[in-house]
Design a protein around this nucleic acid. Structure first.
Lengths: 231, 231
DNA sequence: CGACTCGTTGAGCCAGATCAAGTGAAGTGG
DNA sequence: CCACTTCACTTGATCTGGCTCAACGAGTCG
């Protein structure tokens, strides 16, 4: 059987440009894998044995200092690529935040395939360049923004990426959405503590810039103000 | 004439895998450009018209918040690639820190060439993946490290990268080197203020972990302690 | 020489960290 | 069905690392 043909990210992931023959070949070297929330796919420092594509669900990529302080490097949404081709070691932990399905390849198989199919390699290059831009924007956040600016930036980014990953095209950002992460994880994404994050949520709620239903359901009431905070 | 044949980074830049015929073609679409210290090559937000390779010298890549706070995203050493292929806009400013020579290509020319020469594209992919790893490691620094840890990390990184970029291979890190950047720029790299950076230098000097001759000449006296600070 | 740039040092302040309860919803089990 | 725990978060009180503001070298250039 051939997963790829029915794959929900067939037209958005790095395999988008491949024709049916190529897809059939790629299908043969990959396999689906389901992860439950909390389960890890990659461990920082391990031999880089696998690479993967996110099909459904969401993961966090993170790294840790020697004494246990965590920094989340990014969230991976459907169609995102995971792992470290052309490298010895996996540079980060990857852990599922929700029920997640990924499409896994042995790194050597994937590299051989990419080698023979430059269109795939180009897609991967484009994606990697995009990731690099995104991670550099995050450096500005971590290096120079206040707690309020950081949370506002994250809320806007999540609302945009969730729209993009659910609706396929470049849909307009969601005004109502569920946070895919806990307060502690938000703190680890933003380089803050959980208490500071909680206080900033309270503030945004008090100023009626956002509304919340329970701990994870966010409604953006004043996108303009949120954008003004980011600057 | 053909710059490439005599190019000092011929074997380390993304053109390393190309044969003589390919190099000759690449040579035809590129040109050398000299920058004096302080001169800018790319401006954030501009149409991405050029891409380039650093031949000699050093540049900083930076971005700025709406209200003028700067964050340096990285330093570019000889053989590093600059610019944003497959993208509309340049995502950062690039400014020479020293006398610098770069090898510039019009983006469209470069993309066409890359398209026809997958080996080049693969080199660029490998390099971009390496850059992504590096920028993610910097996120841990910016999000979770103390001022002391940040400066120690930077000093170690500079001493390693200067060794690599001067001696070609994987030479051992330099124990005596010249800082390529001012105190203000170090602050902008580390997400700190100039005063904090200055105080940390003083501390490392007092503890005889480093020695300094003037403002820019650093000698690493106790690499072990520097590494211990980083953890 | 003054004017300027770059860096260092000091004094005080504040955003966010740390430490310490408190709350409320969801599960557990008796 | 109600105590009892647990987990995830919130809130309050206090502390502090790094920021801000300000003064002061030490080179450097005209």
């Amino acid at each position: 059987m051939n997963f790829c043909q029915a794959c929900s990210i067939r037209n958005r992931a790095i395999c988008a440009d491949l024709d049916d023959t190529e897809i059939a070949l790629l299908n043969r070297i990959g396999r689906r894998k389901n992860l439950s929330a909390g389960e890890s796919l990659l461990w920082e420092g391990d031999q880089a044995v696998f690479v993967a594509n996110v099909v459904t669900g969401m993961l966090k990529l993170s790294t840790t200092t020697g004494d246990g302080r965590e920094q989340i490097l990014g969230l991976s949404y459907p169609s995102d690529f995971l792992g470290r081709p052309y490298g010895e070691r996996t540079p980060y932990d990857a852990q599922a935040l929700t029920e997640t399905t990924v499409c896994v390849f042995r790194r050597v198989d994937f590299e051989r395939f990419a080698h023979e199919h430059p269109r795939l390699e180009r897609k991967l290059l484009e994606r990697t360049l995009g990731e690099l831009d995104r991670s550099r924007r995050w450096m500005l956040l971590l290096g120079r923004m206040s707690a309020e600016e950081r949370l506002a930036t994250l809320l806007l980014e999540i609302s945009e990426r969730l729209a993009a990953s659910t609706c396929g095209g470049d849909a307009s950002p969601l005004d109502v959405f569920e946070l895919p992460v806990s307060r502690q994880q938000i703190a680890d994404i933003l380089g803050l503590t959980i208490e500071t994050v909680s206080r900033q949520f309270t503030r945004l709620r008090e100023e009626e810039i956002i509304g919340m239903n329970g701990r994870r359901d966010v409604e953006v009431l004043r996108r303009d103000l949120l954008e003004a905070i980011v600057g």
